[in-house]
Design a protein around this nucleic acid. Structure first.
Length: 487
RNA sequence: GGCGGCAUAGCCAAGUGGUAAGGCAACGGUCUGCAAAACCGUUAUUCCCCGGUUCAAGUCCGGGUGCCGCCUCCA
């Protein structure tokens, strides 16, 4: 099996082949930084991060470019409301993005181009489209001439003549055709603007991505990511501009992630129907959120809900405990069976691990199916547990145990489930428990020792009220945070 | 009105021709003072409905029903 990627233009999965051997160019539509990032945004970036990690695992040198749209109407409005420069608004939200991305274990892009740093290139690209008769200036604006490109609509699967287009002309616009869209918009005197051959203005929404993507990745590159809601008009327009400007095919594979829903509505800034990422991070560990987001195929729609996150936390815990148990066993000091030999349970484990490895990568090769791949990991945990039960504490089949560990490590590098990696995960075995709770635990141990069960149960209740759960083991009692995944 | 997507157990979810992954919940068991945690086991003769193609269909084709998205800013 080799990597196959879904291509929604042909509605099939195609064998992946890079434009340039050994290299992959990936452009991800970043945020319009009018507001703080919400969970829906971060879903898109987590998905692209997983994809990038897998491509790197396959050995490609990936160049990941992710823009910030730092000037647009809504940013201007916001800045005006607050009485500050638009740059303050956009920088503030860019900073927030980077904070969220870091805790979600999203690897930094190689470049984060800003629209406002590329005005000369945007002007040049626009002028070129005008020169090629794919665009025209009108009343200080410049519009892309949609009907000048025969293939317009191929990406989103619509036909120019079918579009309900009459409603799109706004007062003051001078489009020749309602379908046309702005490359350059004239600016009012009190608005931010830059000089151009058409007067003072600012870029339209789509042109920035054409300019920055082709500048950093070349006219034709491999992957372009972004939410499903960007398909039309944004990516359709971006694609039209790029193809007309460069005369080449633009993108080989589009990675449109499904949208995150809240209740029965799409999470959306403009509807106010969203959870800010920072607020969700206060409720659930970042690892659990990332696990939750990767536990469905990235192209499908996900419903956000706290119950769902809680479930994900429990599931994630099972996985993590499996990894920890394996680490403990490998470090247990039990005498390994001689090299080259396997015990009966070791034999069974060995076969299982090989099969899990095959299935894990088959899932990833199948359009980056992280959900299927995660399912395989749970199977590994189960087989490891069965080995534990069958082998007892004395046996230690080094080879299959090493192979199992190696698969967890590969999986972790690809899925990015643990911020510190597997070694870090295993090291974190002692969650922080406040002294107050420790004291109660000690009190309860004393009560148990004098077989005062009523007092012991009451103490357990008080500890639970503080958000901790007690576990009694052969070596005494311990407390841990009651929230799954909370350490 | 145009275009597109989805429908798999109580819930979430993978599965694009070969006889239903996985997680949560539930139940049974081991353990426990009781629990919790942990581990083991059980839980869809069946994939919205009706036709068709095929030796074989959740998977392909046709029709129907239901839900949703896009066509306006949006990850």
């Amino acid at each position: 099996m080799a990597l196959h990627v879904y291509d929604h233009v042909t509605r099939t999965r195609r064998l992946f082949a890079p434009v340039h051997p050994g290299q992959v160019g990936m452009y991800v539509c970043g945020m319009t930084v009018q507001d703080k990032p919400h969970v829906g945004h971060m879903f898109a970036f987590v998905a692209c991060d997983m994809i990038r990690r897998y491509l790197e695992h396959l050995g490609y040198a990936v160049t990941h470019v992710q823009n910030f749209t730092d000037i647009d109407d809504k940013i201007i409005v916001k800045a005006r409301q607050e009485g500050i420069d638009f740059r303050v608004v956009s920088q503030r939200n860019i900073d927030l993005y980077h904070e969220c991305a870091a805790v979600l274990n999203i690897r930094p892009a190689h470049r984060y181009p800003l629209v406002t740093d590329h005005i000369p290139e945007i002007v040049a690209f626009t002028a070129d489209l005008v020169a090629k008769d794919h665009a025209y200036a009108a009343g200080g604006d410049v519009y892309f001439k949609v009907r000048s490109w025969d293939e317009y609509g191929f990406l989103s699967g619509r036909h120019v003549d079918d579009m309900r287009s009459g409603v799109r002309i706004e007062v003051g616009e001078a489009k020749l055709d309602p379908l046309d869209f702005a490359l350059w918009k004239s600016a009012a005197p009190d608005e931010p603007g830059w000089d151009s051959p058409w007067g003072r203005g600012r870029p339209g929404w789509h042109i920035e991505c054409s300019v920055m993507a082709t500048k950093y990745l070349g006219p034709h590159f491999d992957f372009h990511g972004g939410g499903r809601d960007l398909l039309f008009p944004h990516h359709e327009n971006e694609c039209a501009q790029s193809c007309c400007g460069t005369g080449q095919k633009f993108v080989n594979f589009w990675l449109h992630n499904g949208l995150l829903f809240l209740g029965d509505k799409k999470m959306s800034k403009s509807d106010g129907n969203f959870f800010a990422m920072g607020d969700v991070l206060a409720l659930f560990p970042a690892e659990v959120i990332r696990f939750f987001l990767l536990n469905a195929h990235f192209r499908s729609q996900i419903d956000y809900g706290e119950d769902r996150l809680r479930e994900a936390g429990v599931a994630y815990d099972r996985l993590r405990r499996g990894v920890r148990r394996l680490a403990e066993r490998r470090a247990s000091g039990a005498a390994p069976v001689p090299e080259g030999l396997l015990s009966g349970p070791g034999e069974v484990l060995s076969r299982a691990v090989r099969e899990h490895r095959r299935r894990f990568f088959a899932a990833m090769d199948d359009d980056f199916n992280s959900a299927g791949a995660i399912g395989v990991l749970f199977g590994l945990v189960r087989d490891l547990n069965q080995y534990d039960a069958a082998a007892g504490p004395e046996l230690l089949d080094g080879a299959p145990l090493d192979e199992a560990w190696a698969l967890f490590e590969d999986a972790d590098r690809i899925l990015g489930l643990h911020r510190e990696g597997l070694a870090g995960l295993v090291a974190v075995t002692a969650p922080v428990v406040p002294q107050e709770v420790l004291d109660l635990v000690a009190e309860r141990v004393a009560a148990r020792n004098r077989r005062d069960w009523a007092a012991a149960d009451a103490l357990r209740g008080r500890i639970a009220d503080l958000g901790f759960a007690v576990e009694d083991g052969p070596d005494g009692s311990t407390a841990r945070p009651a929230i799954p995944g909370g350490d």
